[in-house]
């Protein structure tokens, strides 16, 4: 019994990480209908940026966020301004194929720079710290921090979307680009800000990913898929939905792995496909109007 409680708890906590993968994806889809195939590779890029920052400056991973987050945001802004804005329009293919090309570039660029060796960020003593929740049920400090950060990130995005001028600009641009321009909004800048924000979240996710497990240049696509599955499970356009989606995905994987180690990923995918079959709009779709 407590064994299963432990399993489910681990799943919930890892779900926070998946929710962060999902939030960045969902954000840019919401603002500009762009699905970024390179999203997972950008998460891995953030992990490598964190690796360099921690190694060269001797910072611990959590402190390195102070540099990694702005660096990734800047990359996001530039990427959107210089490249991705050119792909937006009625045609589906250009954004899809350009971000697909970008994914290949990032993967192979990282391979060229860092080789295929597995890396990991060392967070020191905190990595082994655990709390006992109840008799036989333990949580690690790091997974707990990661989950709390994920909840904070999503709450923050929700606030930003509905309580700030930037969020208003995001929603207005998403509604009607032409009229948004009439309001003095430079939509190219608004889109670039959305991508910057998305990659800021990606940076946080990347650092936690790198602390939690080994990473190498090839693991990006799987992170994209996890994020995507969490988005669809939660329901398009809903920030809190992505958290629920991430948690469901995390728990499914944990339960699958408990049954048979080879079933970890499969169980997650099957949960996603099951939701798609019975409730394609997701569990918490945004009610429009």
């Amino acid at each position: 019994m407590t064994e299963w409680l432990n399993v489910i708890l681990q799943g919930v906590l890892i779900g926070g990480l998946y929710a962060m993968f999902a939030a960045g994806l969902s954000l840019i889809f919401g603002v500009m209908r762009l699905v970024n195939i390179a999203h997972g590779d950008l998460i891995v890029l953030a992990a490598y940026v964190a690796l360099m920052v921690t190694q060269t400056l001797g910072l611990d991973p959590l402190t390195s966020l102070l540099l990694v987050v702005p660096a990734m945001a800047l990359i996001g802004y530039a990427l959107q301004r210089l490249l991705l804005n050119r792909t937006l329009g009625d045609d589906l293919l250009p954004p899809l194929l350009v971000t697909f090309g970008l994914s290949i570039i990032i993967q192979n660029g990282l391979l060229e720079l860092f080789t295929a060796d597995s890396r990991k960020l060392q967070a020191g003593a905190i990595e082994v710290q655990t709390f006992q929740m109840m008799e036989g049920v333990w949580v690690g400090a790091l997974p707990l921090i990661q989950f709390i950060v994920a909840v904070a990130v999503i709450a923050g995005l929700q606030m930003l979307f509905y309580r700030t001028a930037l969020g208003r600009a995001f929603r207005a641009t998403s509604d009607d680009q032409a009229v948004a321009q009439l309001m003095g909004l430079d939509t190219r800048h608004v889109f670039a800000m959305a991508m910057a924000l998305s990659l800021a979240v990606v940076a946080i996710a990347g650092v936690f990913l790198a602390v939690r497990a080994n990473f190498d240049p090839s693991i990006g696509p799987a992170r994209l898929i996890f994020g995507f599955e969490a988005v669809i499970i939660g329901g398009l356009g809903s920030m809190w939905g992505t958290l629920a989606g991430g948690v469901i995905l995390g728990v499914s994987q944990a339960v699958g792995a408990q049954i048979d180690p080879g079933w970890q990923l499969l169980a997650g995918h099957l949960a996603f496909l099951a939701i798609l079959a019975v409730r394609p709009q997701g569990l918490f779709p945004k009610v429009s109007g």
């Binding site: 699905v35 995507f228 599955e229 499969l266 995918h269 496909l273």
Partner: peptide, 21 residues
């Protein structure tokens, strides 16, 4: 059931399921 670019990633998930199976 997935539209546009989400369809693309959905097909990828299916391929992953096939690979794992």
């Amino acid at each position: 059931r997935l539209r546009g670019a989400y369809f693309a990633i959905g097909t990828w998930v299916v391929a992953e399921v096939f690979r794992l199976l």
